[in-house]
Measured scan of single mutants.
Amino acid sequence: EIRVRVEKDPELGFSISGGVGGRGNPFRPDDDGIFVTRVQPEGPASKLLQPGDKIIQANGYSFINIEHGQAVSLLKTFQNTVELIIVREV
C-alpha cells in the first residue's frame, strides 16, 4: 500500500475507471475496484499516481466495493487535498 496526497489545482488531474456495476477497467477486468486510468501530464497527480494504480481509500472513505459514480462524486466533493491509499502492482 502506498499513501499519497494530491492537492487539487483546480482538479486532481487523474481519471478513474471500474467500480461495482461499472464497465470494468482495462488493467484487471475481473476486479471491480477503482483504478487510475489516466494521469494528466504536469497535473497535480503526475508525480504521484500511475495508470493501473488501484485506489482503496480516499480521505478515509473506503473505495472497496464502491460504485463508479459514487467514487467520482466523492472525489469531486473533497476540498483542496485528497489523501489516497493505493495499491500498485510492481
Score class of each variant (00 low, 15 high):
1 E>L: 06
64 I>P: 01
74 L>W: 06
2 I>R: 06
36 V>S: 02
89 E>R: 07
87 V>H: 13
64 I>C: 14
21 G>C: 07
46 S>W: 10
8 K>D: 00
23 R>I: 14
8 K>R: 12
68 H>M: 11
40 Q>R: 12
85 I>H: 14
11 E>H: 07
16 I>E: 04
39 V>I: 07
28 R>D: 13
5 R>T: 15
46 S>Y: 08
31 D>P: 05
11 E>N: 10
20 V>G: 06
40 Q>S: 11
71 A>D: 01
85 I>W: 09
3 R>Q: 09
54 K>P: 00
83 E>Y: 04
45 A>G: 06
65 N>T: 09
14 F>N: 03
69 G>N: 15
31 D>L: 05
23 R>Q: 08
21 G>F: 07
1 E>D: 05
11 E>S: 11
57 Q>D: 13
77 T>M: 10
45 A>L: 02
60 G>T: 06
27 F>M: 09
32 D>L: 08
73 S>A: 11
10 P>Y: 14
53 D>G: 01
86 I>Q: 00
73 S>M: 11
85 I>P: 01
69 G>E: 11
80 N>V: 08
28 R>M: 08
54 K>A: 03
35 F>T: 03
16 I>W: 06
62 S>M: 04
16 I>S: 00
83 E>R: 06
76 K>T: 12
23 R>S: 15
6 V>Y: 06
70 Q>V: 11
85 I>V: 15
60 G>D: 10
69 G>M: 11
64 I>S: 12
65 N>F: 03
57 Q>Y: 09
45 A>I: 08
63 F>K: 00
74 L>A: 07
15 S>T: 13
9 D>A: 15
35 F>P: 02
61 Y>I: 13
25 N>H: 07
57 Q>E: 14
70 Q>M: 12
67 E>N: 14
8 K>C: 09
63 F>N: 01
31 D>E: 08
71 A>Q: 03
78 F>Q: 08
31 D>M: 05
44 P>I: 04
22 G>S: 13
74 L>F: 09
3 R>K: 13
53 D>E: 02
5 R>W: 10
76 K>Q: 15
32 D>V: 13
5 R>Y: 08
12 L>K: 03
83 E>W: 05
13 G>M: 03
26 P>E: 11
26 P>I: 11
15 S>C: 09
38 R>Q: 15
88 R>N: 05
33 G>N: 03
45 A>S: 07
74 L>V: 07
21 G>N: 15
77 T>L: 09
77 T>G: 15
69 G>A: 11
3 R>W: 07
22 G>N: 12
50 Q>F: 13
69 G>I: 14
11 E>M: 10
70 Q>K: 15
38 R>H: 15
2 I>Y: 09
55 I>P: 01
79 Q>K: 13
20 V>Q: 11
46 S>E: 10
7 E>I: 15
51 P>V: 09
18 G>M: 02
51 P>S: 08
63 F>C: 04
32 D>H: 07
81 T>H: 12
89 E>M: 06
56 I>G: 00
39 V>A: 02
72 V>Q: 14
18 G>A: 04
21 G>S: 10
10 P>W: 07
43 G>H: 10
1 E>M: 10
60 G>N: 15
61 Y>A: 08
46 S>Q: 09
70 Q>F: 12
38 R>W: 14
4 V>C: 05
63 F>S: 01
23 R>D: 15
71 A>E: 01
21 G>D: 06
59 N>Q: 07
45 A>R: 02
51 P>D: 07
7 E>K: 15
3 R>C: 12
34 I>C: 02
68 H>S: 08
83 E>S: 06
78 F>S: 09
19 G>W: 05
78 F>N: 09
40 Q>F: 15
46 S>T: 07
72 V>F: 09
89 E>G: 13
55 I>R: 02
41 P>M: 08
18 G>W: 00
74 L>R: 08
38 R>F: 14
19 G>T: 04
30 D>Q: 15
6 V>G: 00
75 L>Q: 02
49 L>K: 01
75 L>C: 02
69 G>T: 14
49 L>N: 00
40 Q>E: 14
7 E>L: 12
56 I>Q: 07
90 V>R: 08
40 Q>G: 09
8 K>S: 09
66 I>S: 03
72 V>M: 14
69 G>L: 09
32 D>M: 10
28 R>A: 14
78 F>H: 05
77 T>S: 14
82 V>G: 01
11 E>W: 07
84 L>Q: 03
1 E>H: 11
76 K>I: 05
25 N>S: 08
71 A>I: 02
42 E>H: 14
31 D>C: 06
72 V>D: 11
34 I>Y: 02
10 P>G: 05
62 S>T: 10
29 P>E: 12
46 S>P: 03
88 R>K: 03
42 E>A: 10
73 S>N: 14
90 V>P: 11
63 F>A: 01
29 P>L: 10
30 D>G: 13
16 I>K: 03
53 D>Y: 02
86 I>E: 01
31 D>I: 05
10 P>D: 03
34 I>F: 03
16 I>N: 00
81 T>I: 10
63 F>P: 02
17 S>N: 06
20 V>S: 13
22 G>D: 08
85 I>K: 14
68 H>T: 08
6 V>F: 13
22 G>W: 10
2 I>T: 05
33 G>A: 07
61 Y>S: 09
20 V>K: 13
68 H>V: 09
17 S>G: 13
47 K>A: 11
59 N>Y: 02
76 K>H: 11
87 V>C: 14
35 F>Y: 14
74 L>C: 06
75 L>D: 01
47 K>H: 07
47 K>S: 12
81 T>S: 13
69 G>K: 15
30 D>E: 11
37 T>M: 08
56 I>D: 02
38 R>Y: 13
16 I>V: 09
11 E>C: 13
76 K>L: 08
53 D>A: 02
40 Q>Y: 09
80 N>M: 09
27 F>P: 11
3 R>S: 09
6 V>I: 15
43 G>R: 07
29 P>Y: 14
35 F>I: 08
55 I>M: 02
52 G>T: 01
56 I>E: 03
3 R>L: 10
60 G>K: 07
47 K>I: 07
84 L>P: 02
62 S>P: 10
36 V>L: 02
82 V>P: 01
25 N>R: 07
80 N>E: 11
33 G>S: 09
64 I>D: 10
56 I>F: 01
42 E>G: 15
62 S>N: 10
53 D>S: 01
21 G>E: 13
12 L>N: 04
44 P>S: 09
